[in-house]
């Protein structure tokens, strides 16, 4: 009997403990539910309605989804976004890795370099795009002034097909590469120095050290960096919107831009929500695919 009572007391105590834990988590959960979960489900609901920015709302079933599948602007914008993901993710990851290696080499002035490479990351979108518009703009911009000084022709960086993507890519690398660099740097500094010492004793070449030790040891971090970078690239909007207006034509109009245009310029919140759901599924799909690819290689 006594032991039963004791057990009962123990359960009661555990219940109280977990109640306290839940109460402590409640403020966070309340905010999480209010600002993350609720909007997601509300967005899902809105995608089945004809909601506009204001006015009455009517459920229209799958009409928005049918319209989306037949909307060539939707597919075009999605294609532009995917194109940017493909060109930007490898570029930024590789540049970030190279910069991290450079700083990790502990040469003179690396503290300055580390700060310099990372500092652009803290700037806001409007500052960054304002700066790079000045660099790229024809007639009075930095690059074109130099080119024309040496007798070259004006280059229309931000309004020529193809070239505009190069300009957007350069801006994005400059702006965000610091983040990837810091992640790589942290991982590099976690590699035990004994491994390098052993390699040195065994007479391994620099290339062997890089490909047999450094890169394999960074595998986990690389998976993370690639995933984060891919998602960041999917969200591209500000650079193309502010620097090129999505143009020429719709050449750089990304899916986020098109969702914004549908929701706020044309006030079709229902349709914009539908495309947001589709966009969410695409990003989720790519993230899962990437995880699967990396996991397979590791034989898990």
């Amino acid at each position: 009997m006594g032991s039963l009572n004791k057990q009962h007391d123990l359960h009661a105590a555990q219940r109280k403990e977990s109640l306290a834990a839940w109460l402590f988590m409640l403020p966070f959960l309340a905010l999480y539910a209010a600002f993350l979960l609720f909007p997601i489900f509300r967005g899902l609901y809105t995608s089945f309605t004809n909601a506009r920015l204001v006015g009455t709302v009517r459920i229209i079933g799958l009409e928005n989804y049918a319209e989306m599948l037949a909307d060539k602007d939707f597919w075009g914008s999605m294609g532009n976004t995917l194109y940017f993901v493909l060109i930007s993710t490898p570029t930024i990851v590789v540049v970030g890795f190279v910069l991290a290696m450079l700083i990790n080499a502990k040469l003179k002035g690396t503290v300055f370099l580390r700060t310099a490479y990372f500092s652009s990351y803290v700037l806001s979108m409007s500052v960054v795009t304002g700066l790079w518009i000045f660099i790229f703009q024809p007639y009075t911009g930095l690059i074109n002034t130099i080119i024309t000084k040496f007798g070259g022709q004006e280059i229309f960086w931000l309004s020529t097909r193809g070239i505009v993507w190069l300009a957007i890519l350069m801006t994005t690398v400059w702006w965000t590469v610091g983040f990837d660099m810091v992640l790589f740097l942290a991982a590099l500094q976690n590699i035990p120095t004994e491994m390098y010492e052993a390699a040195e004793i065994d007479g391994a070449s620099k290339a062997q050290v890089l490909f047999k030790i450094t890169i394999p040891m960074l595998r986990e971090s690389t998976v993370l960096v690639v995933m984060l970078q891919m998602i960041a690239s999917f969200k591209l909007f500000g650079q193309t919107y502010l620097m090129a207006g999505g143009g020429p034509g719709t050449h750089t109009r990304t899916i986020v831009h098109y969702i914004y245009e549908s929701g706020f310029t044309n006030r079709r919140l229902g349709y914009a929500s539908t495309m947001s759901i589709a966009f969410f599924l695409v990003v989720l799909g790519f993230s899962l695919l990437q995880r699967k690819l990396f996991a397979n290689k590791e034989g898990r």
Binding site: I133, Q137, P138, Y139, T140, G141, E154, F156, L158, S159
Partner: peptide, 9 residues
């Protein structure tokens, strides 16, 4: 063509 800020020019 290609003018980012006509007033500035």
């Amino acid at each position: 063509k290609g003018q980012k800020n006509g007033a500035e020019i």
